[in-house]
Design a protein around this nucleic acid. Structure first.
Lengths: 266, 266
DNA sequence: ATAATTGTTTCATATTATGAAATAATATAT
DNA sequence: ATATATTATTTCATAATATGAAACAATTAT
């Protein structure tokens, strides 16, 4: 229906002899929460593949259960094997393993949900989440892709990217998710400047109304920002006066994880 | 190191023109909780691929973030994109969507964790889990592969398979996970016979010591067993005298989901 | 009934994946 | 330190494999 990849960041020049695999992956990446089910023709069009090719690749994916068919509609959906692989990927993620205990105490201290997120292509991916002790937890966000410009973690991760990349990412007006979402690239740029200085980012009602989050960067031994952690909850609990205190906790936790990764300040 | 696939159930005759993709998937499937990181040579050997081929395929997978390298060891691990895909696959799963509300009330009624599981190759895969209201929840089992013969759900799913398949699956002695695990194929067969009659299966300390679970089958409109749901918790809470009552609830819930799938008893 | 969809099979073609061999980069042993 | 395995990459000729046009079948809409 629509072309799936608008901007191809990370557009690594393809390794020779990997066309088929790259195409199969492109098919998998076409599935999203917004469009979880595809018809063959639409999917072929969206990925720019020949119908026959898409069919053949999908058959291979289906045989291995990475893709399944909706028995009623005949449409293609992501398959159960991906659930298994996703679980394995999560549990095998070294960053997640290191961060978990820190996130747990952070969630305890603040009473709010704590998350670990990384930048993947044009989204922020939630790698781990520890629900807050307070009610209205159970957010179940792990594995979700969130927009970079409307999240505290996104701002933190974005702030660390080189100018050339930002130019690409902030080329045009950003989509509004709430009335508080920053949609003007220039405005976001100045926000990022402050995030760089302060080492913290906040998002108040920018992703969804009534939801506030604070994030801080996680650095590795090469001083690269590899992830961001955040604490988030209802804006009525994470009030303006409480934010500084929470932000400090988030920053301390982030530094703790960074140190485990071999980061050394100074 | 070791060959990865011992028995290839679901060994569908490969679609022509899908070798590369099938091989790439085989690489992905080699990763497990037991062996989350592979060296190129070992992985090539385990999958029976030429080193060069494995390298090329892995490069393609790495470029798309389905696989990542451990920066320290250089070893291959599953990548973050799989976490995203796994999440999408979960949320797109129609069975899961239908079952969730039922699982939630089941978990509330029993106070124990309720799960939804399907048979994938030689394992049972946890597709969804609603933690129990009682403490010692937080099991975090979604995306886990569990052994078929040591789980209540596994027995339920196994009981529905045709004899030919059982002959394959129960060819040799089964691995013991606890001292109560059924390891004798003949003994398991007679258990399965009872499961078929009663429509419920239990597992008391067979997966891990002190853990008890009850499961019932979910049927679709074609009267095929497509999934199993279970309730599980500490054996000290799920005592022999309480089990019948819980089993009845699990069965009722399973029937409820089945009916939503178009199953009609009679 | 007709038309326009959908998914699927077949098959000639050459593009693309393949694996042998050589090379480079590390780790391990002597 | 030097030699010796054992890693991971690159190169490249070869043919096996993925490709897509066309034809077909199976639905669904008109």
């Amino acid at each position: 229906m629509f072309p799936v990849k608008e901007l191809d960041l990370h557009a690594t020049e393809m390794y020779p002899g990997t066309q088929a695999v790259a195409r199969a992956i492109a098919l998998l990446k076409a599935f999203s929460d917004a469009q979880p089910e595809w018809t063959l023709n639409d999917l072929a069009q969206a990925t720019g593949l020949h119908k026959t090719t898409a069919f053949r690749l999908l058959s291979a994916l289906e045989a291995e259960r990475l893709v399944m068919r909706n028995p009623l509609s005949g449409g293609y959906r992501l398959g159960v094997e991906l659930i298994a692989m996703g679980g394995a990927a999560m549990r095998a993620n070294p960053l997640r393993a290191m961060s978990r205990p820190v996130l747990v105490t952070l969630a305890e201290q603040t009473g709010e949900a704590a998350t670990l997120e990384v930048l993947v292509e044009d989204y922020v991916l939630v790698i781990d989440e520890v629900p807050g002790s307070n009610p209205m937890g159970m957010t179940q966000d792990v594995g979700h892709r969130l927009p970079v410009h409307a999240t505290a973690t996104g701002k933190v991760l974005l702030a660390a990217r080189p100018e050339a990349e930002l130019a690409q990412r902030l080329a045009e007006r950003l989509p509004a998710l709430t009335e508080h979402t920053i949609t003007d690239p220039q405005q976001l740029r100045s926000v990022l400047a402050r995030v760089r200085q302060e080492g913290v980012a906040i998002a108040v009602g920018e992703l969804e109304p009534g939801f506030t989050a604070v994030a801080a960067p996680v650095l590795d031994r090469e001083r690269q920002v590899v992830a961001a952690i955040s604490v988030g909850g209802p804006s009525v609990r994470l009030t303006a006066e409480r934010l500084p205190e929470v932000a400090a906790m988030v920053q301390m936790s982030a530094r703790q994880i960074s140190r485990q990764l071999g980061y050394w300040p100074g």
